[in-house]
Design a protein around this nucleic acid. Structure first.
Lengths: 355, 355
DNA sequence: ATGAAAGCGCTAACAT
DNA sequence: ATGTTAGCGCTTTCAT
């Protein structure tokens, strides 16, 4: 690896001239000098040491990305879009980390980013407490938080980008109602993040508005493996649903992964989707279109949100710091009219289940 | 952000003493001094600037991870395991990037890593050409390559970790043969990576050994979106299969994502899995267990491979640099005996398809 | 138009 | 046992 010194020597100029070339201050020198430096750079295959640049300038070409878990395909999907925009808009690489929605892990990651000189972070999270973000901003970071709004009343220096989660749940719920469903459920996991609360509100509001029965089913906690387990929770919730005397005929799932778990679980109990139970997801992640039946879901505009997040992380779009994006319903096959009578189900015992 | 200078001043010692504390050379000083320094560190919330450390030592606490695409849930799954071991075994964070199996992108990422001082990389790739890896090793990098063996004959300074892909395809193929299938297909995408060749070999060998018809179906190229599209290719291949006069009754898919696409496509043509066509995947990614029918697949030992990769990236495990891991069959629901007679299928036209 | 030099925050050899 | 100091590779101000 050659250094700026090598280039300077090779071109017969001083390091500052080379530095000027590197930093686009070519107008300060003779064309001839510029060319000499450029060819020296080429010949030596010189790549400026980012570490040294960063130490000097305090600016990294790295973008921190915190996701709850890389095992939920939705976050892989989002990471991909974010990566693309980060490259295109700012030449930034991704320093990624999983938080499993754990405050400790999230803080530790922030500390590491700071120590690495990373000044821009996108956090896909939704922990209620945002104070460590503010601390980070205080340390000069540009923080973008996904999936939760600013705490009302306190003005925040953190940018917020999110889908309208309440609307998402409403769209899903209304879709079921339009198909004639009158006994609805919203399935979630333990723990109220902001996005989960918003979805529950949307669901409840839509059900109440149509004067239809709507209940919230909490499938319990996620373990350290985080998001994969969300599908397992969905499966368990399906068993719970199958056991109910007055079974809901339409279910809105917290997200697509949970919906997939739900569908698998319902099937295990001998219940058909959508003939016995209709299911709607929220997310619109690509793999969810491959299920049988194909999952009807509320799509989030991932590309647009990713672009907005990167723009804010780069401190473009100074004006409107917070943005909410509208989701849209994607009709596929997992919703139909409710059954005329409730079919009896059979919940398998643990040992009968496939892994 | 306080610096080592601040700490030194605060504790009334020199910077080297603080540095000694930081680098575990506490035995060189009086206990009392150590304590003074430690409390100064605590009081100032001092975090050493990694950039400066790295510039000095040439050692980053970052691990580069190259994946073909974050949109294939299998790679999210692998990334998660790699991240865990990287943290546990070396306190390393992940600098991640997608290559879309493009040489240019792969090289550019390597250059960036080098410029960022990153000395360890894990590459989930399988491009035939490995020369740029060797260059990187020449530049002092520790490179671990997944899913392809060393080029025979040339001894490589790149470590190789991989599943036995040939065996994986064999296990899948044999499983179909054991169920009585005599007309088999292996579905893949355009482009022969090493892992794809190995799988094709395993498939062909198993079919020939059982004196059974086995053909390889190439669904065409992937576009820039890479891996998501692999499911679409699977779907298109399913349509191709449905059109065949002598339809295969058992199909081995290149990987789980393609298998999911295949199942969706077969269903669109009115063919039931496994009654009309049996399908086996390769990977064992979590979401593939949620399909209907649940996908029978050959599981790769992701955890073990991840651990091996990180160990090699850290230059532990100097001895056996290359390792091959054995996969294992996971029986679920997508394989049954072949149908007694071939059912007629109906391939939908493009405009009839759901997105 | 070009160069000299200070310094970003740290490490580690070398003094004391 | 502790301190002094020379860099790591770059940017940038200030001279020339």
């Amino acid at each position: 690896m050659s250094t700026i010194q090598d280039v300077a020597r090779h071109a017969g100029v001083s390091v500052s001239t080379v530095s000027n070339v590197l930093n686009g201050r070519a107008e300060r020198m003779r064309k001839e000098t510029l060319e000499r430096v450029q060819s020296a750079i080429r010949e030596l295959k010189f790549q400026p040491n980012r570490l040294a640049q960063q130490l000097k300038t305090g600016q990294t070409s790295l973008l921190g990305l915190l996701v709850p878990s890389m095992t939920n395909p939705m976050y892989g999907f989002m990471a991909r879009e974010i990566e693309k925009f980060a490259q295109e808009m700012g030449g930034l690489r991704l320093l990624i980390g999983s938080t499993y929605r754990d405050r400790e892990k999230e803080s530790a990651f922030f500390d590491d980013l700071l120590a690495h000189g990373v000044r821009r972070v996108i956090v896909i999270s939704s922990l209620a407490d945002e104070r460590h973000f503010e601390t980070a901003v205080g340390n000069g970071m540009s923080v973008v938080s996904y999936d939760r709004g600013a705490t009302p009343g306190r003005r925040s220096r953190v940018a917020h980008v999110m889908p309208d989660n309440q609307l998402a749940a409403q769209l899903a719920t209304r879709h079921l109602i339009e198909h004639g469903h009158a006994r609805l459920a919203f399935t979630t996991v333990a723990g109220l993040t902001m996005s989960r609360s918003a979805k529950i509100q949307g669901f409840t509001a839509a059900a109440e508005h149509a004067r239809v029965h709507g209940e919230v089913l909490d499938g319990g906690p996620l373990n350290e493996y985080g998001e994969t387990v969300i599908a397992q929770v969905g499966r368990a919730t399906a068993h719970q649903i199958a056991r109910m005397r007055e079974r809901p005929t339409g279910v809105v799932a917290l997200n697509d992964l949970m919906a997939m778990g739900l569908m698998a679980g319902l099937r295990e109990c001998g219940l058909a989707v959508p003939q016995d139970v209709s299911v709607v997801g929220i997310d619109g992640m690509p793999v969810a279109g491959l299920t049988n039946p194909a999952l009807t879901t509320v799509c989030l505009p991932v590309r647009e949100m990713a672009q907005a997040m990167v723009a804010r992380a780069l401190n473009r779009e100074r004006g409107r710091k917070d943005v909410v994006f509208a989701p849209s319903l994607l009709r596929r096959e997992s919703v139909a009219a409710p059954p005329t009578r409730q079919r009896s189900a059979r919940v398998p015992r643990a040992e009968e289940l496939l892994s």
